[in-house]
């Protein structure tokens, strides 16, 4: 079986200060079983052989759990496949002859480092601002020493699946980081261990989100659709509630 021939329009930017531009590449003989990143690897190999600079993109686990591999594919963060990170997206979802546009996350708080790589440390600073609990350091506590209702445990776990990829920001027409921030606030706020800092956490994390230059949420719901972990808008409602009622 012969592979697909694709045309890629890719954002190329030499560094943070470069203006950047779209460049067009042909990739031949792409196997439908390749992942999207493998397809880029193939292109990069050819670029290197041709003496060109390969396309820089972030990736690490390639199994959908680390959150490194963000790119906007044909205008949709992580591509059109739902609940899927770019690394888990397979080329069988594309057709021979397709033109695919690939861009980095676009947000002033996520400056482009190079090509498709953006600096997401704004997320780290949001976490630093309040995404923690106070724990007595020392040996691990006994299991079940603090009972957690099953519902809360499940919902907290769902929120905790956020991998910090930033797709929610990329997809949001306002460039808002609400879904990410809310996922963390929900994850910790639902658990007994998260109660002591519940108020200060909501305030500090929202303030940091604002200070980083992210936009405000207008409940468009674009984020939850592209989120590879399906974090729901419930998290944002909860963040709003915690923030507004914080003392």
């Amino acid at each position: 079986m012969s592979g697909m021939n694709l045309t890629l329009r890719v954002w190329r930017q030499k560094g943070p200060d470069d203006e950047g531009r779209m460049a067009t590449y042909k990739v031949e003989d792409v196997s439908p079983d390749m992942s999207f990143l493998e397809m880029l690897d193939v292109l990069n190999d050819r670029l290197i052989v041709a003496g060109d600079e390969p396309i820089a993109f972030d990736h690490d686990c390639r199994e959908g759990i680390c959150g490194m591999c963000g790119m906007v594919i044909n205008g949709v963060a992580h591509g059109e496949q739902r609940a899927t990170t770019t690394c888990q997206l397979h080329m069988r979802h594309f057709k021979d002859g397709d033109t695919i546009t690939i861009e980095p996350w676009r947000a002033s708080a996520f400056p482009v480092v190079k090509d498709l790589v953006v600096d997401r440390s704004a997320f780290d600073r949001i976490i630093q601002a309040g995404g923690f609990i106070s724990v007595p350091a020392g040996s691990a506590p006994d299991a079940h020493s603090v009972p957690v209702p099953k519902d809360s445990a499940d919902a907290a776990f769902d929120a905790a699946t956020c991998i910090g990829c930033g797709a929610c920001v990329a997809a949001c027409p306002n460039g808002s980081a609400s879904l990410f921030t809310a996922a963390k606030i929900t994850h910790l706020g639902l658990l007994p261990q998260g109660q002591p800092e519940r108020d200060s956490r909501a305030k500090a994390m929202v303030e940091q989100m604002d200070a980083e230059g992210f936009g405000g949420c207008t409940n468009t719901g674009e984020c939850t659709v592209v989120c590879p972990k399906g974090i729901s808008l419930d998290a944002i409602a909860r963040m709003n509630r915690d923030y507004l009622s914080a003392k």
Partner: peptide, 11 residues
């Protein structure tokens, strides 16, 4: 919101 996304998507 306009400041948060200074560069628009090409697609």
């Amino acid at each position: 919101a306009a400041k948060a996304r200074p560069v628009k998507y090409a697609a």
